[in-house]
């Protein structure tokens, strides 16, 4: 379980997260949605331990982030954070990289030697597995980064925009199925961000919508539909919740155009 209590985060003068409190239950897949620059990545960075909030605390499975050495070390073993644009070791092969990450998270060698080839095959990286990562396409690099988050087998996964970065349709499908499987069968807690509602509608247990550093809504799709009085898909819900300006702007644009 991830709990944020009254978290405020800013680097400059403008707060990016304001007094944010949120709870993500064990075995839940939560998706953070919101316009660009509203604090999605900052929120995930705070949960992932990359940023220390100016105020408030983050707890993961009852352990407070950056509170003590032992607690922080235990959190790092339990939770993996993958930013949207990680740096990968260009001279290592994809297989070596994944083995290295697995070892870092103390996955037994036998399990790694069995799991890594299956992951590489799932994401269609089998042929490139033994080539240096610097020779991979952007989409393949994204895939190997995602594999690194999966190979660690942590009970908590914090993924910043896992569906962006040039994933092909088969990669998108594989990732969606794998994440849902981890939540349903293994009780993994997953929080991820995405700017594209259509991609996550079918996998999200709850959706957290951010606007200007605050929680605009945090509920299931049904709950959000009730809240907005809409029966459409998540895109329609978001139109009402966070993109009313866009709808108005579009109408205005076409009126002008018609004239």
């Amino acid at each position: 379980m991830i709990v944020l209590t009254s978290v405020t985060q800013h680097y400059g003068v403008r707060p990016v997260l304001r007094k944010m409190s949120v709870t993500i239950h064990k075995g839940e897949l939560v998706v953070v949605l919101g316009p660009n620059g509203m604090g999605k990545s900052t929120l995930l960075s705070v949960m992932g331990g990359v940023l220390a909030p100016q105020e408030g605390i983050v707890t993961i499975d009852g352990l407070i982030r950056r509170h003590s050495v032992d607690e922080e070390l235990e959190i790092r073993r339990r939770a993996i954070y993958l930013p949207d644009r990680p740096w990968l070791p260009g001279n290592r092969t994809g297989r070596e990289f994944l083995l290295g990450v697995g070892r870092l998270y103390d996955i037994p060698d036998a399990r790694l030697l069995e799991h890594v080839p299956r992951l590489l095959e799932l994401f269609e990286l089998g042929e490139k597995a033994d080539s240096p990562i610097r020779g991979y396409s952007a989409g393949q690099q994204k895939k190997v980064a995602l594999c690194s988050a999966l190979v660690a087998e942590t009970p908590v996964m914090i993924l910043d925009e896992p569906f962006s970065g040039g994933l092909d349709p088969s990669g998108l499908l594989a990732l969606k199925r794998v994440l849902r499987h981890l939540v349903d069968r293994r009780g993994v807690t997953i929080i991820l961000s995405s700017p594209v509602p259509e991609l996550i509608e079918e996998i999200a247990d709850r959706i957290l919508i951010l606007k200007e550093g605050e929680i605009l809504a945090y509920d299931t799709l049904d709950g959000l539909q009730r809240m907005t009085g809409t029966r459409g898909n998540l895109g329609k819900v978001l139109e009402h919740l966070i993109f009313p300006d866009t709808t108005r702007n579009l109408a205005h644009y076409f009126e002008d155009y018609a004239e």
């Binding site: 790092r76 954070y81 070791p89 070596e96 990289f97 990450v101 870092l104 998270y105 690194s148």
Partner: peptide, 19 residues
């Protein structure tokens, strides 16, 4: 596994926030 990298060789973010 012999060539599997160490923490510092795994890139960002594993080099800084990995176990």
């Amino acid at each position: 596994l012999a060539t599997a990298a160490g923490r510092a060789d795994l890139g960002w973010p594993f080099d800084r926030i990995g176990p």
